[in-house]
Design a protein around this nucleic acid. Structure first.
Lengths: 173, 173, 173, 173
DNA sequence: AATGAATGAGGGTTCATTCAT
DNA sequence: GATGAATGAACCCTCATTCAT
């Protein structure tokens, strides 16, 4: 049921209706609403669950010794996730999703921590606001998934550019 | 009518309904459908018109002498546009939009041309696929607009990072 | 449409659904909602329209010379109405009906005016609160309609008792 | 369970659902339906139980020496009951309630007996049909409970008027 | 015997589209 | 040619009832 919803998101299904979810889950439509109280609550729970391992991944990255490498790996992970779930960005516009919002905040926080740590370690330039990470970890890669030439390599190239751009400028000639 | 639709997108209105458009345009709802054949056709035309000046901006940039500066300016422009029209990314998911698709292709092409010219001029690294520009000029900045700390400075910082990341690596120590 | 709703009330139909109304009115169900904004608004308008002639009847009664006779005639009218529309009392419980509420207030007011005038003229006892009329003109006759022995005569007998009971006690031996 | 249903009626709860009843009774929702066969059967049993003491009260009144006083006391009791359970009148419309119907008949009968006895004793006028009592003891006081100026005094005033109206006309000047 | 979980039928509402005027 | 009015399809949601546990 939560799994069904997550699957629909992962498959990029555009019509995330209660009927679609219930049919996928093999249950009645009313069960979905009754179990979670409303469609919004179900979506909220499903998306929050989807984001959870990503947040965990970020926290694990904070424990890795190489701060720059940790940040890079995290960004690749985030982008891969976004590529696989870009439909989310299209269907969550006008919903109230407290759990998802909280999870997003957690994701932003761990991203900030990662970039801050990398900056403190001298791997990241200090002349730009660290909140740039908000952009980097959010729906940033929407286009990657939609692009006709979408590929994992593209995502990795993107991170490569980002990381090189984030390096301190005194590294340059 | 097209202007009304564009205005609704620019204002970030969530409910882009035929009624909302017709009311804004000061015409009957039926006129909208009859004139364009369907809501999709209207949206298609409006979005294509919205993208058109952006494509033109890219073509102008191709005529500027400094290739790197031209690319940078173009990216800033694109991001500013996306920030102002992020709602588009949320409401166009399941529609068939041929004109928009064509305009997007044109935007991608001019972006590719810009990055290729900058690369040929030695301002851009050659070790990554130029199609990365697809990512850079597309819905990349969705998060900038939605971010609580959204600001023009954030967008410019993003471009700064991108551009620095795009520089040839031999520039580095 | 309003007429259809009023007809359903008059017929004592228990299921006052949008579908029933629309079918009765010979229009689509969506038309009902669109025209009035919501089912509640339609019910509100219909009930208010139903009460309106009753209020007017009361105002006319205020102009009649014989105050006691005027009150008596009004009560009979009210009871006849209630008998014919008792279903209203069952289906309006949890709705917000501003127009209906206003109309009910007007009905109470004109009832109060009638009883006050009759009292000032000496036809009605002064030892009881005039607000008793609220009871007399409201859903008072619900039972008359439901009673197996329901008849117009029963209603008139009821008014007879009420009016005699309302007479000043000094009339008695 | 029956007590829970009665409590909900007494509290004027608008949503008399099976879930509400079962939760109040501390049992599963399925138990309610299985025990009574259907929601209707439960409501029927509960309402019949609610009416039972009222019928008993009427039978006791038949044993009181003063017929007029007995009728008056009974009417007050009935009205107090109706005031406390007016919600019943709104939620029982389309149900088949055999026990309740029987209990209502019993209530009508005892009411008729009371008024007949009072009439035979000369305390009540003979020029009107005794079935008027059906009106007097039924949902007559729905409005009392709903009226903004609802008060026990209002109910008592109502009975006062009724009883005075019921007196033989030869008592009058 | 009791129940949590499931559900089908039915409710009100929205909206892109059609059509008579 | 333009439109207000109408509508069917689809949506989310409620609730009395059923059934495997």
């Amino acid at each position: 049921m939560l799994a069904a919803t997550k699957a629909l998101f992962a498959e990029g299904r555009v019509a995330i209706t209660v009927d679609a979810i219930s049919q996928r889950a093999g249950v009645g439509a009313a069960t979905v609403v009754r179990t979670f109280g409303s469609k919004e609550a179900l979506i909220d729970a499903a998306v929050a669950e989807l984001l959870e391992p990503l947040v965990q991944r970020g926290r694990d990255a904070l424990l890795e010794p190489d701060a720059e490498q940790a940040l890079r790996g995290f960004l690749v992970e985030v982008i891969a996730f976004q590529s696989a779930h870009w439909i989310m960005g299209e269907r969550l516009g006008d919903m109230e999703l407290p759990s998802t919002t909280a999870q997003r905040a957690a994701l932003n926080k761990v991203g900030l921590d990662l970039i801050t740590r990398a900056r403190d370690g001298g791997a990241i330039r200090t002349d730009i606001d660290a909140t740039i990470v908000t952009v980097l970890i959010s729906e940033v890669t929407y286009a990657i998934a939609r692009s006709e030439s979408a590929s994992p390599a593209l995502a990795e190239n993107y991170v490569l550019v980002i990381m090189d751009g984030l390096r301190p400028q005194q590294d340059r000639v």
